[in-house]
Design a protein around this nucleic acid. Structure first.
Lengths: 177, 177
DNA sequence: GTGATTTACTAGGACTTCCGAGTATTTGAA
DNA sequence: TTCAAATACTCGGAAGTCCTAGTAAATCAC
């Protein structure tokens, strides 16, 4: 893993020091490296929490999305949109979930290009239990105070906004350009 | 990609709303999802910047680390430690870099278990150029003001600290327990 | 000094992500 | 209406991450 063998110092800070002696101001490099590292830590933690349920966080996200949908089913394309991943990633996830009996593929009569993914009863039960486990573990960020979580969310949201991840509130979507 | 097809709303906010009606307080879930998403966006941006040089960010990190080392070479194990990735990930990266002629494997005479990865002249040149491209693009976070970057770095550092990512300053490493 | 343990690297496999390309179906335009 | 363009899904492949397990070499203990 990346986590277990801990150094006697913070490798990101160290990299920043070396960076500044070679290249210049390391702030943006440190920010980006930190994001990568935190993602790595969180994902490892989440997957560890979900391991007893034999799913990964990627597949858990699909299950939750289906739980939120009105009738427990969604076209694969919608899943990809909402989760912001490539269509082939959805195919891959649904393949595995279907093999595990947690989800079923159902043809969509109203548009025969589409395939719906539908939660099975077993899928619904597992999602409940997995969600309990994740919320009890606070998604792997217990120890981070609430105000810090809020600040973090806001800053990340600003970053996403400046990367064009979602429309600005003052952008009129109905009347483009 | 996840980026191109933008929804008319923020999927993370929306997931938070749905989450709260089904399960409860979505703050930690929103924070974690945001980290995942930002990592995805940044990595895509960095890889796009590096595409003309025919390397990925993962391989770039290896090259920079070698640049920082005294003689342009390091044992693979050190690389894994510093980059906080699994030994097999290093093997994989070095395999590719070696195939590209950017790095050379050199046996370590002082410890014959070890293999050193050494920058080739071509590897050194490419690292310079790639670094220029990345710094000019501010590592994909142009548009994020400096104070926000600082706050973000500090919050992520706190999060890493609470996950035990590095020793606390008041922890005496030389005298364990 | 010899044997057990630890360390370093690699091989193979699972999982996720992306991309490009191909097939089917629906929509839209002439 | 008929043909072109857009949309939905899948297949195969590349790249990254991790894990388990195996071999070789160094270190530690007795």
């Amino acid at each position: 893993m990346g986590r277990s063998s801990r150094l006697a110092f913070d490798p990101i800070d160290r990299a920043g020091e070396l960076w500044s002696t070679h290249f210049g101001d390391p702030l943006s490099m440190k920010v980006v490296t930190s994001v990568m590292r935190v993602q790595q830590l969180l994902l490892a933690e989440l997957d560890a929490i979900l391991k007893p349920f034999d799913i990964t966080f990627a597949r858990y996200e699909v299950l939750v999305l289906l739980t939120f949908s009105r009738n427990g089913s969604l076209p694969l394309s919608k899943i990809g949109e909402r989760l912001m991943v490539h269509p082939t990633s959805v195919t891959n996830a649904i393949d595995r979930l279907e093999r595990q009996g947690l989800v079923r593929r159902v043809p969509d009569a109203s548009d025969r290009r589409r395939t719906l993914a539908e939660l099975t009863p077993s899928g619904k039960r597992l999602t409940k239990r997995a969600t309990r486990a994740l919320t009890e573990a606070d998604f792997g960020i217990t120890g981070v105070p609430e105000h810090a979580q809020r600040q973090l969310y806001d800053l990340l949201r600003d970053l996403r906004a400046s990367a064009g991840d979602f429309p600005h509130p003052d952008e009129d979507v109905s009347r483009p350009a």
